[in-house]
């Protein structure tokens, strides 16, 4: 009996925090800015720190993952005499799965954690209260540009990741391992479809970007404003963000490719 009550209370608690996070998101994003030009400047600043600064890690990881995929794929496909299919394998794996998922995981670690820490520190140093006291809504001023920048950047980064991955794989398989490049491209183009593969991968990345950025800004805003609290909130962003990405990926993959 007592356990049931506790379980119920835990569930209610959880629902409440989900509701709070939802209201938080609506309040920060769906309010019109007072000064459009200023908001644009803030957004550009965040696009820089969230997107441009994540570019190096995304490009480097993308290239290496593409190269490794090509090596692994080649060694197996060569046994069946169909090493040309390495292009197909590379493109499908990157576009459908690895591009969006790995980019989102990297994004949670690189940009998500720094968003949480930054907002948490602004809370701890009373900067958020300070905005409030000046009659400026911190949700709109601090949270909204960060959230929007995250949602814009992650899908772009995921596209860049897939493209560099394919280029990396191309270099390894065609230039080093001697796969015929005509066959490489034609097999790839035959099996990759714009809507099922590229667009679906892109949609996945959009879902991930909303989830990760939402978690990151919410954890920062709701953290206990001490150095320990900020540390914990940052960890939670990375852990919850990664889990959310993987769970969402399963659901989305089932919905998109389940009937194949």
């Amino acid at each position: 009996m007592k356990m049931v009550a506790e379980l119920g209370a835990a569930l209610l608690n959880w629902l409440e925090s989900v509701g709070r996070a939802g209201i938080f998101l609506i309040q920060s994003v769906f309010r019109l800015p007072v000064r459009p030009k200023e908001s644009l400047n803030l957004l550009v600043k965040q696009l820089y720190s969230v997107g441009v600064l994540s570019l190096v890690i995304v490009v480097v990881s993308g290239a290496f993952i593409g190269m490794v995929l090509a090596l692994q794929g080649y060694s197996i496909l060569a046994k069946f005499g169909s090493e040309e299919a390495v292009g197909q394998l590379l493109a499908l794996a990157l576009l459908r799965e690895l591009g969006p998922v790995v980019t989102a995981l990297l994004f949670a670690g690189r940009a998500g954690s720094s968003l949480t820490a930054e907002i948490g520190l602004m809370k701890a140093t009373e900067q958020l209260s300070s905005f409030e006291m000046m009659g400026v809504d911190p949700l709109r001023r601090v949270i909204a540009p960060r959230f929007i920048a995250g949602v814009i950047c992650l899908p772009l980064l995921s596209l860049i990741f897939s493209a560099t991955g394919i280029i990396g794989g191309l270099i390894v398989s065609v230039n080093w391992l001697g796969v015929h490049d005509g066959a490489f491209w034609s097999l790839m183009q035959q099996s990759v479809y714009f809507d099922t593969d590229i667009l679906n991968g892109f949609i996945k990345a959009v879902f991930f970007s909303v989830a990760v950025t939402w978690i990151a800004v919410y954890q920062g805003y709701e953290c206990v404003p001490t150095s320990e609290g900020i540390g914990k909130a940052t960890t939670r962003t990375v852990v919850l963000g990664s889990l959310a990405i993987l769970a969402l990926d399963f659901v989305l993959t089932a919905a998109m490719f389940g009937d194949f």
Partner: peptide, 20 residues
């Protein structure tokens, strides 16, 4: 930021035209 967005769009076009 401008360069970043252009590179992202170029990656999209590259994937669409060259890969698919």
């Amino acid at each position: 930021v401008g360069a970043f967005i252009v590179v992202g769009i170029m990656a999209f076009v590259y994937l669409a035209v060259q890969v698919s």
